[in-house]
Lab assay of single mutants.
Amino acid sequence: HSHMSHTQVIELERKFSHQKYLSAPERAHLAKNLKLTETQVKIWFQNRRYKTKRKQLSSEL
């Protein structure tokens, strides 16, 4: 499990705020920019979407 830097997370968050789903080319581009693997980016987005979904569910209770 590799640790992401604060800067990388900020960039991922910024991208996520604009779009929740990335196409393969977008993911490849973002990964390259942030010096991450595409898998890391993919998993981060999956986890981030899951967290957002959970938060929405709990706020509706």
Rank of each mutant, 00 (worst) to 15 (best):
residue 44 W to T: 00
residue 3 H to F: 10
residue 56 Q to V: 08
residue 48 R to V: 05
residue 29 H to N: 11
residue 23 S to I: 02
residue 36 L to P: 00
residue 26 E to A: 06
residue 22 L to C: 07
residue 41 V to F: 03
residue 20 K to Y: 05
residue 31 A to Q: 00
residue 55 K to G: 12
residue 20 K to I: 06
residue 37 T to R: 02
residue 29 H to Q: 13
residue 43 I to G: 04
residue 33 N to W: 14
residue 25 P to K: 13
residue 15 K to W: 14
residue 1 H to Q: 11
residue 46 Q to E: 13
residue 7 T to G: 08
residue 59 S to W: 05
residue 33 N to A: 15
residue 29 H to D: 11
residue 49 R to K: 03
residue 25 P to D: 12
residue 20 K to S: 07
residue 57 L to I: 12
residue 31 A to F: 02
residue 3 H to K: 12
residue 17 S to C: 15
residue 7 T to D: 11
residue 57 L to Q: 13
residue 61 L to Q: 10
residue 2 S to G: 14
residue 47 N to Q: 13
residue 10 I to Y: 11
residue 5 S to N: 07
residue 23 S to R: 04
residue 18 H to R: 10
residue 41 V to L: 03
residue 30 L to E: 00
residue 57 L to C: 13
residue 44 W to H: 00
residue 2 S to W: 13
residue 32 K to A: 10
residue 34 L to Y: 01
residue 43 I to C: 11
residue 10 I to N: 07
residue 20 K to C: 15
residue 8 Q to M: 04
residue 24 A to R: 12
residue 8 Q to D: 03
residue 9 V to C: 13
residue 29 H to T: 13
residue 25 P to G: 15
residue 59 S to K: 12
residue 34 L to C: 05
residue 27 R to T: 12
residue 33 N to T: 14
residue 20 K to Q: 13
residue 34 L to R: 00
residue 21 Y to L: 03
residue 16 F to P: 02
residue 4 M to T: 03
residue 27 R to V: 15
residue 10 I to D: 08
residue 50 Y to W: 11
residue 44 W to P: 00
residue 2 S to F: 14
residue 29 H to E: 15
residue 13 E to V: 06
residue 17 S to M: 13
residue 59 S to A: 12
residue 9 V to G: 02
residue 34 L to I: 04
residue 22 L to P: 06
residue 16 F to S: 02
residue 61 L to T: 15
residue 35 K to E: 07
residue 32 K to Y: 07
residue 50 Y to H: 11
residue 1 H to G: 09
residue 19 Q to Y: 06
residue 58 S to F: 10
residue 26 E to W: 01
residue 21 Y to T: 04
residue 39 T to M: 13
residue 15 K to N: 05
residue 39 T to H: 12
residue 60 E to T: 04
residue 5 S to T: 14
residue 44 W to V: 01
residue 38 E to Q: 06
residue 5 S to D: 06
residue 6 H to S: 09
residue 3 H to Y: 09
residue 17 S to K: 12
residue 13 E to D: 03
residue 18 H to F: 08
residue 6 H to K: 12
residue 20 K to W: 06
residue 21 Y to A: 03
residue 32 K to V: 10
residue 9 V to M: 15
residue 8 Q to P: 01
residue 25 P to W: 11
residue 16 F to M: 02
residue 54 R to G: 12
residue 27 R to G: 03
residue 42 K to W: 08
residue 54 R to T: 13
residue 49 R to P: 01
residue 30 L to P: 01
residue 46 Q to R: 14
residue 61 L to C: 15
residue 48 R to M: 10
residue 16 F to N: 01
residue 58 S to C: 15
residue 39 T to F: 11
residue 37 T to E: 04
residue 4 M to Q: 02
residue 32 K to R: 12
residue 5 S to F: 04
residue 60 E to R: 03
residue 31 A to G: 02
residue 44 W to S: 03
residue 26 E to D: 06
residue 39 T to W: 14
residue 26 E to Q: 06
residue 2 S to D: 08
residue 18 H to T: 13
residue 12 L to G: 01
residue 36 L to E: 00
residue 49 R to W: 04
residue 19 Q to K: 12
residue 46 Q to F: 07
residue 7 T to M: 12
residue 47 N to K: 12
residue 18 H to G: 07
residue 47 N to L: 11
residue 11 E to V: 07
residue 24 A to D: 06
residue 21 Y to E: 01
residue 50 Y to D: 11
residue 49 R to L: 07
residue 27 R to Q: 07
residue 7 T to H: 13
residue 14 R to S: 07
residue 36 L to D: 00
residue 34 L to D: 01
residue 22 L to N: 00
residue 38 E to G: 02
residue 54 R to A: 08
residue 61 L to A: 14
residue 7 T to Y: 14
residue 12 L to P: 02
residue 1 H to C: 15
residue 41 V to I: 12
residue 49 R to M: 04
residue 7 T to V: 13
residue 42 K to Q: 10
residue 5 S to G: 04
residue 16 F to Q: 02
residue 45 F to M: 02
residue 24 A to S: 07
residue 38 E to T: 09
residue 39 T to N: 11
residue 60 E to Q: 10
residue 4 M to L: 09
residue 59 S to R: 06
residue 2 S to A: 11
residue 58 S to W: 09
residue 15 K to Y: 14
residue 1 H to R: 08
residue 10 I to A: 10
residue 7 T to P: 04
residue 12 L to D: 02
residue 45 F to Y: 03
residue 21 Y to K: 04
residue 8 Q to T: 06
residue 48 R to I: 10
residue 12 L to A: 01
residue 35 K to W: 04
residue 22 L to Y: 01
residue 38 E to Y: 05
residue 42 K to P: 00
residue 20 K to E: 08
residue 47 N to Y: 12
residue 17 S to E: 13
residue 5 S to M: 04
residue 61 L to D: 14
residue 12 L to C: 05
residue 19 Q to A: 07
residue 48 R to F: 04
residue 54 R to N: 13
residue 9 V to Y: 10
residue 51 K to E: 15
residue 50 Y to Q: 14
residue 58 S to L: 12
residue 8 Q to A: 06
residue 26 E to L: 04
residue 37 T to D: 04
residue 30 L to Q: 01
residue 23 S to N: 06
residue 40 Q to A: 06
residue 17 S to I: 08
residue 12 L to W: 02
residue 6 H to I: 13
residue 29 H to G: 06
residue 55 K to D: 13
residue 58 S to Q: 12
residue 4 M to A: 03
residue 1 H to T: 11
residue 18 H to A: 08
residue 3 H to P: 09
residue 1 H to Y: 10
residue 56 Q to G: 12
residue 50 Y to E: 14
residue 41 V to D: 01
residue 37 T to I: 02
residue 23 S to D: 03
residue 54 R to K: 14
residue 17 S to F: 14
residue 35 K to M: 12
residue 25 P to M: 14
residue 36 L to I: 05
residue 47 N to R: 14
residue 19 Q to S: 10
residue 13 E to I: 07
residue 39 T to K: 13
residue 43 I to R: 09
residue 44 W to Q: 01
residue 44 W to Y: 04
residue 26 E to F: 01
residue 53 K to L: 09
residue 22 L to K: 00
residue 18 H to C: 14
residue 7 T to L: 13
residue 43 I to F: 07
residue 1 H to M: 09
residue 19 Q to R: 10
residue 52 T to I: 08
residue 2 S to M: 11
residue 27 R to S: 04
residue 7 T to R: 09
residue 28 A to K: 10
residue 13 E to F: 07
residue 47 N to T: 09
residue 8 Q to G: 02
residue 8 Q to N: 02
residue 10 I to H: 12
residue 52 T to D: 15
residue 25 P to N: 13
residue 47 N to V: 08
residue 40 Q to T: 04
residue 32 K to S: 08
residue 56 Q to K: 11
residue 38 E to C: 06
residue 33 N to Q: 14
residue 24 A to Y: 14
residue 35 K to N: 14
residue 39 T to D: 12
residue 3 H to C: 15
residue 6 H to D: 10
residue 16 F to A: 03
residue 30 L to T: 01
residue 40 Q to I: 05
residue 40 Q to R: 02
residue 33 N to V: 15
residue 19 Q to C: 15
residue 40 Q to M: 04
residue 8 Q to W: 05
residue 20 K to D: 03
residue 22 L to D: 00
residue 9 V to N: 05
residue 44 W to E: 02
residue 43 I to E: 11
residue 44 W to F: 04
residue 8 Q to I: 07
residue 33 N to L: 15
residue 2 S to N: 10
residue 51 K to F: 09
residue 3 H to D: 10
residue 28 A to Y: 05
residue 5 S to I: 03
residue 56 Q to C: 15
